[in-house]
């Protein structure tokens, strides 16, 4: 870990010194922009253009918008005001932000608890034929439309849904119970959508553990549980961290799940933004919320990057 950081420092120094050292007497040296020849810039231009149009400009626009004011009928008055960010700090909005963090964290945790045994089974217990089948099954939710899946959950969880029908028939319930519009249904939906993001990195991490290490642990007197805690779990830590961040980050911005399976009391940050842009027609406030969300996503990804760096420097 340390050497990586030190290398980065050296790299940075070299970059910052390079323009000063450039000799203008060298022929064609004007072709070099920064440290990269102009030709490379030209070759990269489609990609650069892509990033410029689709990433940099909307983000810039959003950021500018977040400092604007709202006029009558949703008119945007360009200005530099922090009023929108002040408004976000009101309890009603903070509640939603807090709820979003809690739901995202809970989803990541539940996915970890459900995903670990699954990944463990696929990596260690299944024979190779069944392994491929199980991995395929794990990928399936990626290929189903989110909307279709959500409607399926509506059918299963609804007042006239499968679960209620079954429980009424069995006499467990006397009146239908509303599973929808509860934290339960929203988190269930999130877990359903994001579980593969936990299982796959976990599986990859577990698969990489040499089997002789597990044999060595047994050989030295550790039974199943102790081997799990002292060898398998520490060695699968990169997978746990990757999975948790891969789930936590997109959960912060998710709005479909809460829109359909939840209600006003389970709305998340994504729904709030959706609401400001469409229903409330308050684009500047929506933009400020988006900037906040982006800030949270960036810090999440930053930690993910740190884990990745640690993992690669360990290998």
């Amino acid at each position: 870990m340390e050497p990586a950081v030190r290398d980065a420092g050296v790299e940075g120094e070299r970059t910052s010194r390079a323009p000063g050292k450039r000799s203008w007497d060298e022929p064609l040296s004007w072709l070099v922009v920064g440290r990269t020849p102009l030709a490379s810039h030209l070759l990269l231009s489609p990609a650069s253009l892509w990033v410029l149009v689709l990433l940099v400009s909307p983000v810039t626009l959003l950021t500018l918008l977040s400092f604007a004011k709202i006029g009558a009928y949703g008119r945007i008055l360009w200005s530099f005001s922090l009023a929108n960010f002040g408004q976000i700090m009101r309890p009603a909005y903070l509640w939603v932000i807090g709820r979003t963090l809690v739901y995202a964290g809970a989803t990541a945790l539940i996915c970890l608890l459900l995903g670990f045994p699954a990944a463990y089974y696929v990596a260690f217990a299944a024979d190779s034929k069944r392994k491929h089948l199980l991995l395929f099954a794990l990928m399936l939710p990626f290929w189903t439309s989110a909307l279709v899946a959500i409607y399926c959950w509506l059918i299963v969880l609804g007042r006239e849904g499968l679960i209620n029908a079954l429980m009424l028939r069995l006499g467990i319930l006397s009146t239908p119970f509303s599973f929808l519009n509860t934290p339960f249904s929203v988190i269930l939906g999130l877990v359903y959508f994001y579980l593969p993001y936990m299982v796959l990195p976990l599986y990859a991490a577990l698969e990489k553990i040499p089997r002789t290490l597990i044999e060595a642990s047994h050989d030295l007197g550790a039974g199943g549980l102790k081997t799990f805690l002292r060898v398998i779990l520490p060695l699968s830590w990169p997978g746990v961290a990757s999975g948790a961040i891969l789930i936590f980050v997109p959960c912060l911005g998710d709005f479909l799940t809460a829109e359909f399976l939840g209600g006003p009391r389970t709305y998340l940050l994504g729904n709030l933004i959706d609401n400001q842009f469409l229903a409330a027609q308050n684009w500047p406030l929506g933009a400020a919320l988006t900037v906040l969300l982006m800030g949270m996503l960036m810090s999440g990804l930053y930690f993910y990057g740190r884990v990745e760096v640690e993992e690669t420097s360990r290998v």
């Binding site: 002789t212 290490l213 044999e215 060595a216 642990s217 047994h218 050989d219 007197g221 550790a222 039974g223």
Partner: peptide, 16 residues
């Protein structure tokens, strides 16, 4: 294996 009073030195070392 973990109930036997026997230890093994593996050819690949198998260090943690």
């Amino acid at each position: 294996p973990y109930r036997r009073d026997i230890h093994t030195v593996f050819q690949s070392y198998a260090l943690f």
